[in-house]
Every structure is written in C-alpha cells, then in structure tokens.
Design a protein around this nucleic acid. Structure first.
Lengths: 129, 129
DNA sequence: ACTGATATTAGTAACAATTACTATTATCGA
DNA sequence: TCGATAATAGTAATTGTTACTAATATCAGT
C-alpha cells in the first residue's frame, strides 16, 4: 500500500520547518522553498505538509485565523496567538496533559488527546501600548 | 459609529442557536433559518453569525474540520470532537481555567483566555466497534 | 547500468468556506 | 410621515485547499 519514495522537495520542506520557530503557513513555506526549487508547485507543498503531518513528522496547527500553520516541533507543547499582531508562538510551560483526565471523568467516550490554544496580548504588543 | 438596528433574521439565528446543542455550521444554520425565512441569504447568515460572535452573544468554534461551528452557549466550557464520526459535543467537566496560570508563568505577554479541544472516540463510536 | 512499476511532481483546474459589493428594503428617532 | 442609515437578498469575488493529469523521479530487481 503506497510505499513511500524519497523526494527532494519533501525533504526540503521538512528541513525548512526544522529551522523555523514561527509556525509558517503553507504559503510561507512555498515562498521559501521556491528559493531553492524555483518551480515547486503550491500543490506539492500542500500535499507534502499533509503527508508529513499524517506521518507525525510535523504538526498542523489550526488557529481559526485563516490559514493552517505548520510546526516542525512534534514534541507536545502549547501555543499562544496574539490578538493584536496575530503572531503564533510556542509557550514554555509545564505539562497540562492531566486535563485529559479531568475531561474524561463524566465522559463515556475515549479521550486520546487535546489541543489548547492560549490567546491574549504578546510581550511585544504589551510593551508598545 | 454604526448603531445596531433590530433585524428579525438576526434574532431568528440567535434563537435557533439557543435551541441547538450540536454546534451547527453556518450552512446548517442557513438551511434551518430558511424554513422560517425562505429567502434569507447565506451572506446574511455569515454576517450575523460573525456579528453575534463579536458581540459575545454566541461563540465561534474552529475545529479544523472544514467549516467553523457556532455555539449558542457562551458560558465557558470545553468541546470534544470525535475522530471517527466527526461529531462536536460539549464536555461536562470541572473547570480547567487554571491552566492559564500555568501558561503565564514564564511568559512576558498577557494571557486572556484559552480554547481547548479534546479529541478521540465518542461513546457511540466506541460501542459500535 | 538498465528496465519496469509506481510514487511524485508541476501546472492547472476545481472546490468549499467565507467575504465583499450593490441596489433595494427595513428600522427607528425626530 | 419622513429622512438617515443599518440590514438585506442576490450575486460576484476571494481565499485556502484539494483534485486531476501528463510528465518525471525513485528504486527494486535484473
């Protein structure tokens, strides 16, 4: 069933994400990979981002701000989005995974995971005002 | 600056959401309001859902499953989405708002809120398999 | 190295969710 | 009842994403 074949484009996308800590969108990935592979197609970027995410090699982050974001860091961690400048950043915080136990208490289904997005005003925007 | 005027369509949308506990999408709202106002436009539904959400009278829930969902219950609570059937439901669970304190510990910005989405397999789907 | 099977690609078209535009209609204070 | 303007229906446009297709790249078996 569909043995994976190497592709330099896919490798390049993965490497690019590993160097970025700002959770770029597919479009930003596209513009950057284009510097190395000038005629890569946007469809290829989307397909590989989806594939890598489903393989667990990158993480997709949906914030509701329009486009999905992608994160090269697959270690469990939480995100913060600034309501003022729209920036999406990692939070360096203690694990809150025990909220899954809290959630499962009165629940008849099975909770496998959670994604938490914190929002507010980031440090930069707080200082500006 | 844009004094709000009454509209029966907007009122109808708000009332409809108050009767539903399954977090319908804009399209589902549209199809249902159409039974009362047969020629309401989809644009009107979107505009009013956005307006009501920004007024804090309803809640917008982005899950990443395609369309945004809308919730007539503005009391803080958490949601669960089933990876098997796609159903989005409320969780009856203790407050986990203290995770905001945990998140703010090493953070120089200001955290105003959070939205947590739990996922896994719902009770119905667990029983089926 | 060569070959064949097939995964991947570039390029483009299609799609779904949402927003913008515009002429008409509804609301509401004076 | 009138006038200002918010809201609407209907439609067009936009945005983010996925699907399609012919050509290309990968790679296991020779």
């Amino acid at each position: 069933m569909a043995a994976l074949k190497y592709s330099r484009q896919r490798e390049s996308i993965k490497e690019f994400l590993a160097t970025r800590y700002d959770h770029p969108t597919a479009d930003v990935v596209y513009e950057n990979i284009r510097k190395v592979y000038p005629n890569i197609s946007l469809g290829t970027v989307y397909r590989n981002l989806g594939l890598l995410a489903s393989l667990g090699e990158i993480q997709k982050v949906t914030t509701g701000d329009g486009a999905d974001h992608f994160d090269g860091n697959v270690m469990p961690h939480n995100h913060f989005i600034c309501k003022s400048c729209g920036k999406l950043i990692d939070l360096d915080m203690d694990s809150i995974d025990y909220i899954q136990k809290v959630a499962g208490k009165n629940f008849d289904g099975h909770i496998e995971g959670h994604s938490t997005l914190f929002y507010g005003t980031c440090g930069d925007c707080t200082n500006k005002s």
